[in-house]
């Protein structure tokens, strides 16, 4: 059996679903961040796969690099926020950060 585009897409979908479940189910902010990273990487897998099997060229790989850079920046910002939340609340439970509710 040849490994084709569908296999990659299935892997991407599984990764994305795992990320979504992590984001929705975990209360720990760091875990949520990890979930988000999973979803981003699922997108990366899809991009590389489409690049390899459909369009041909390096556009998808370039996009992937951008995504990685942005993910790194996002992680830096997110960790900074989390650190501040910890300072304020002594824990990093996202359900506790609700002072902006209406």
């Amino acid at each position: 059996m040849t490994i084709g585009l569908n296999a990659y897409l299935v892997i991407g979908a599984l990764l994305f679903s795992a990320g979504v479940v992590a984001v929705l189910s975990r209360r720990n902010a760091v875990a949520v961040l990890i979930g988000i990273e999973l979803m981003l990487n699922a997108a990366n897998v899809n991009l590389v796969a489409f690049d390899r099997f459909v369009s041909g060229g390096i556009g998808g790989q370039v996009f992937t690099l951008f995504v990685l850079a942005i993910a790194a920046a996002e992680a830096a910002v997110a960790l900074a926020i989390i650190l501040n939340v910890f300072d304020a609340h002594d824990r990093i439970d996202v359900d506790r950060v609700n002072s902006l509710k209406g």
């Binding site: 979504v20 984001v23 929705l24 209360r27 996202v94 359900d95 950060v97 609700n98 002072s99 902006l100 509710k101 209406g102």
Partner: peptide, 16 residues
Amino acid sequence: SRLQSGRVRFYLSVSV
């Protein structure tokens, strides 16, 4: 205002 519960995960669940 009931919807604006402040629980991030709830928002995300809805949007997902």
